[in-house]
Design a protein around this nucleic acid. Sequence first.
DNA 1: CTGTATCCGCCGAGATACTG
DNA 2: CAGTATCTCGGCGGATACAG
Lengths: 113, 113
Amino acid sequence: MFAGCDGSHAPLFRVGGKWTWRLIRCLEDGPRRFSELLVPLRYITPKVLTETLRAMERDGLVARSAHPGMPPRVEYELTPLGHSLLDPMNACCTWAAAHLPAVLAAREAHEPA
Amino acid sequence: MFAGCDGSHAPLFRVGGKWTWRLIRCLEDGPRRFSELLVPLRYITPKVLTETLRAMERDGLVARSAHPGMPPRVEYELTPLGHSLLDPMNACCTWAAAHLPAVLAAREAHEPA
DNA sequence: CTGTATCCGCCGAGATACTG
DNA sequence: CAGTATCTCGGCGGATACAG
């Protein structure tokens, strides 16, 4: 998604992935450790969490900082760029919250389950 | 996407599909016929266009009106609900346009292609 | 604790051809 | 013109197990 904004076909920013938006929400209040992300994102697997984080890191949305030692301690936090994504995100979430009932009603009308 | 706004896991509104956002752009200026959508959405196949339109119809974002006769004439247009999606969409597109260079730079830094 | 390594299933998306 | 009918493919996302 976000594609078509510039007329190109490129799939932009990994946003559109299943977990990306929720992950941003988990990070909006400050740095979080790997295991602190596994809990609120219930049922995400470590592999998928790693993939999502790495992708967002490549896009400059998330910063990873590893504190050496034992046990290992790694923290993830939103970069300023990642933080700026919260604005359009909130616009979308506001829309969704306002219009979810209408969408569900429309579905119900087409699929009288 | 849009998931997580209410804490649920439901994949919301079909928005997140590959063509949905571009389709909305094509409809924002008024009704369009099936064949008029195939052209600007270059290389979309009839099958996929139909699937996308049907899904958006189910969600109450698009209205389909078939004028009987020969040759057949069918028009699609955004409902008020679909139109209201333009606001958050534009917020996202504005963000993307503003920060695309930063994202590309971040990718370049991680993948010195 | 913070990941990696395999393997797998599902489904969106496309190619191609055909129909009312 | 406006679709439908099959078939196929790739890749995200998940399950499970293991490692530093």
